[in-house]
């Protein structure tokens, strides 16, 4: 077959489509009939899921502000949002799991931007610009090896990331008796940071088991936040932040129960600040189990 110019190829497609249309069928009622059936099935599925969700609700709790539990489709709603107090595993909705997993892969501060910005941006540009990237005029999959490879790989990558994202671990319980450990494990910190001493397995932010942080940096991060980490100066008091920073500086970069290389930087305030802060901050592991 002679090689066609782009203009000729376009004209040829228009001729062919005009032919298919001329020998086609009317949109109404033929296509509308199929569309209606599929739409009804979809609405049926949505109603079915809503009814299944509702049918497994537990009775409304008597206490205000607490979760109303449900069955396999999850609770009616969880407890009222209470910033900074509860340990919480911040899982996104399932269709953001792939992004969540990307962030777990690129979790060091230097690489975070790859998962959070670069890959999603590249992905969106490829998505929108795809008709200009794939210039192969053929529509049959057997003649579109590159598109076929992309069409197979992208769903596999997305499904894999979604699967692992759904299995991402949440917060753990306190293991250490050190002052501040219970507050770390019971507060927002354990949501994101793995920290062997506090028994926490969060995986969103950098691991404190692997990275030693000195007192000043820890205090600054807790108070002011950085990158994906929220600022806690509005949530915790001065002493509470000093206690947490002191605890992190003393035990980060070491296995559970051992002091880390930056322990000396916290000597002035820790554990004194924890005593002043009181409550969960003063106690060891016992306070955490009582929580």
């Amino acid at each position: 077959m002679p090689r066609l110019t782009a203009r000729e190829r376009r004209d040829r497609y228009q001729r062919e489509y005009a032919f298919q249309k001329r020998h086609g069928k009317s949109f109404f009622p033929h296509a509308v009939f199929h569309d209606t059936i599929v739409s009804l099935i979809v609405v049926g599925i949505i109603m079915g899921m809503s009814i299944l969700w509702w049918a497994q609700f537990e009775p409304v709790p008597l206490e205000p502000g607490v979760e109303r539990a449900g069955g396999i489709l999850g609770p009616a709603y969880e407890g009222r949002a209470d910033p900074g107090v509860e340990a919480y595993d911040p899982k996104p909705e399932w269709y953001f799991f792939f992004l969540f997993e990307l962030l777990r892969i690129f979790k060091t501060p230097e690489l975070l931007i790859v998962g959070s910005v670069i890959i999603p941006t590249v992905w969106m540009v490829l998505l929108i610009g795809w008709p200009f990237i794939d210039r192969n005029p053929d529509r049959r999959l057997s003649r579109r090896p590159v598109a076929l490879a992309v069409g197979v790989c992208v769903p596999i990558v997305l499904l894999t990331l979604t699967f692992y994202g759904s299995k991402a671990p949440g917060a753990g319980g306190a293991a250490s008796q050190a002052p501040g450990a219970a507050a770390f494990a019971g507060g927002a910190c354990s949501t994101c940071h793995a920290f062997a001493d506090a028994g926490s397995a969060g995986n969103v932010g950098p691991s404190l088991t692997d990275n030693a942080v000195d007192y000043d940096l820890a205090y600054d991060l807790i108070a002011n936040g950085k990158g994906g980490m929220p600022a806690f100066s509005g949530t915790y008091s001065e002493d509470e932040m000093k206690c947490l920073a002191g605890y992190v500086a003393t035990h980060s970069g070491a296995p559970a129960g051992e002091k880390g290389p930056e322990a000396a930087t916290a000597a002035e305030v820790y554990p004194a600040a924890c005593e002043t802060a009181g409550g969960l901050f003063a106690g060891g592991g016992a306070a955490a189990t009582g929580d």
């Binding site: 979760e67 709603y77 969880e78 407890g79 009222r80 949002a81 209470d82 910033p83 509860e86 919480y88 595993d89 911040p90 899982k91 996104p92 909705e93 953001f96 962030l103 959070s116 927002a188 949501t191 994101c192 969103v204 936040g225 990158g227 994906g228 980490m229 929220p230």
Partner: peptide
């Protein structure tokens, strides 16, 4: 505005 909603949004916005 339950716990899940709150924390997922905090992390999302910070990302």
């Amino acid at each position: 505005f339950d716990e899940r909603a709150y924390w997922a949004t905090v992390v999302g916005v910070n990302i």
